[in-house]
Amino acid sequence: MSLLGGGIFKGMAVTLRNFVGSYFDKERLTTKEYAWRTDDKLPERAGDYPKEEAEQLSDTTTVTHYSRNFPMLLHDEGEPMDTVRCVACQICERECPPQCIYIEKSKDKMERGGNKAQFYPATFDIDVSVCMSCQICVEVCPFDAIVMNSQFELSTPDRFGGLLLRRDDLLKSNDYYHKIHPEEAAARDKRIADEKAAKEAKKKAAEEAKKKAAEAKAKAEAEAKAKEEAESAEKPAEAPAPTHTDAKKEDNGE
């Protein structure tokens, strides 16, 4: 700092090095290129993003495999509404902090994937102008029916209707989920499979236990009967009286 203005020149040298360096080293660039914007194909105005393209574009950014934006409803393979996982239990609606989910339960029940017939959502709206992408709904859902989408090209010229995602906009297949969040989806599928296996094992164990108990009971009964018979055979003279009254009682009862 002996030379007045020396510090300023030092600073300027840094700026120069960054300026020149940015041509050779991407690390020095102060701007970032979106991976999907290499073709200069910018939409003319808001709302011009074709839906399929937006989905595809959102999919190719560098970090989207982890990012979340707004929720979507999962369905398994097949027709979306036939395999939708949501059972309209409305837990997410209740827990959503800014209260942006609106659900109407169906009147009838529907069977899915060999499970017990359950309700399904007749209406399922999420107002994404209110949603704050917090993921609480995903965490509280006991049926793994709602997960976060990473699609972000949602701009629309219609402020109210356009930002209210209806049930059919929200429905996405599990395959799509695997495409946008591969790690998370795999972990979730594994957990579901594990839980199902555990449940089945438990059911099986319970059934077996039941069977065993029944067998044991039958055996015990048979033994008791055999014993009784043996006893009655041994003492034919004494036994008949109580048996007789018992049978009589039963007759009366009927």
Binding site: M1, L4, G5, G7, I8, K10, G11, T15, E183
Partner: peptide, 30 residues
């Protein structure tokens, strides 16, 4: 996620270099 800690380490290891530069840019400026 997998590999996150390595990526973090990379960022952390590079950060002092940036700080040196930043200090050169600002701390002595009259």
């Amino acid at each position: 996620p997998e590999g996150w800690l390595d990526r973090t380490r990379e960022v952390v290891d590079r950060f002092p270099k940036f700080l040196d530069e930043y200090e050169k840019l600002l701390c002595e400026n009259e």
